[in-house]
Design a binder for these strands. Sequence first.
DNA 1: AAGTGGTCTAGACCACCGA
DNA 2: CGGTGGTCTAGACCACTTA
Lengths: 251, 251
Amino acid sequence: MSESIPAGAAPRYQQIAEALIRDIERSRYAVGALLPPEPALSQHYGVSRHTVREAIRRLADMGLVSRQQGIGTRVKAKSAAQRYVAGLSDLAELMQYTQRTTLKLIGERRLQADAALASLLRCRAGQPWIEFETCRYPAAGREPISHTRIYVLPEYEGIRDELKGSVWVYGLIEKRGGEKIVEVQQEIGGAAIPAHAARLLQVKPRSPGMMVTRYYLGRRERLLSVSVNYYPENRFKLSTRWRLEWDGAKA
Amino acid sequence: MSESIPAGAAPRYQQIAEALIRDIERSRYAVGALLPPEPALSQHYGVSRHTVREAIRRLADMGLVSRQQGIGTRVKAKSAAQRYVAGLSDLAELMQYTQRTTLKLIGERRLQADAALASLLRCRAGQPWIEFETCRYPAAGREPISHTRIYVLPEYEGIRDELKGSVWVYGLIEKRGGEKIVEVQQEIGGAAIPAHAARLLQVKPRSPGMMVTRYYLGRRERLLSVSVNYYPENRFKLSTRWRLEWDGAKA
DNA sequence: AAGTGGTCTAGACCACCGA
DNA sequence: CGGTGGTCTAGACCACTTA
């Protein structure tokens, strides 16, 4: 072959990828069905098998097809699902204290969840927890940014000794138990600051604020820790950037 | 070459990929530096250039290196950064009104940003906007969930006619202008509900609530729309799930 | 002009699957 | 067994960057 390609034209494999995508969208190749084998495509488009494979690789990256040795290339979806994603390189970004902050340990107690706490912590009543009460301060200022109750499994009791300073609880859990935090569920709502927290935060009871509850889960959905945070008005903002991304995370 | 590979051994390109990863981790190739050119690697490992490219492709998929035609392959990171990601298949999930809700248009006006508004909307003073004031209601109940001021570029004035019902503004923008929303920046903080919004939300002025500001951006960071939302306490919670994912999103 | 990565060919053998 | 995708070779020309 080796026909000269017009300048500015897309590479051959990309043209073929586009052709295949069109064929999938127009249901020439139905979802669940097999694409023609690579040698057939290679002959049909008059290119080498390598070029066809390059095209199919694009489709696979987009999640449109999946390949299986010995079987073939199966159509998995009619169109590349676009989605918006947000990413964190580190869990510390979740809290977004860009400036240095200090964690102050106010108190600690062992307890068993009563009905109310069990509901908040999504566990069964009677479940034993250790509760750390903390406030977080900016390095320079005096007013605390937040009041936080941290609940951890009793087996992580020892983290108390390392809790001082600007360390993050989940880091301590990962360091000690060796259990990795695989998922964090975060709930945010407006809330009046309860009297006890208000005192520590130096605001009036029932002042407006934000309540953030975070559930830290390990492998197999195991709940390792829960934190309940109160942020008074105007001291802290949570921000998140959602970006459109093509399935497969290609730049 | 074509030495027989021991059964069960990893493919050659994978072995080479692992060797390169080791070399990067051990700083034989520093972050920011260039990997040796493909022909050199091909000769060094005694494989074809294709095989080397397959290995480097793995590294690129993991975000360890980036390639640039005419320049070379540059090391971008020492290790495949694990990260936590959250995904939305649709922007509607950002708002998370699981039940059906209705948008009620309260008012509309054209305006030019004064200093305060310009700061909020991150634009220059004098920039013309159209402001829609809306409340969102659950289907059955009476109390509104939220009060929202939506700012859009004047060119999208026409979306007013479609704003009624439970439609989402960004959908209208995409439908009309053809401009795609590529990024959404979201800021959340606790806030007292201002008097005007409080009246519509049927709460007392300065009651605790949550303020959510969302910036909708198109291609090239172009700001298309901004929404300022107030949610009273206990009527709505934002929840997000962050999951650990390996860079490159390879299963 | 020289060197880089990007694309492409025409072969080959292999591991895996279903009949 | 024949056919699938997976790996690999030994070439080739091209587009792009730097000098």
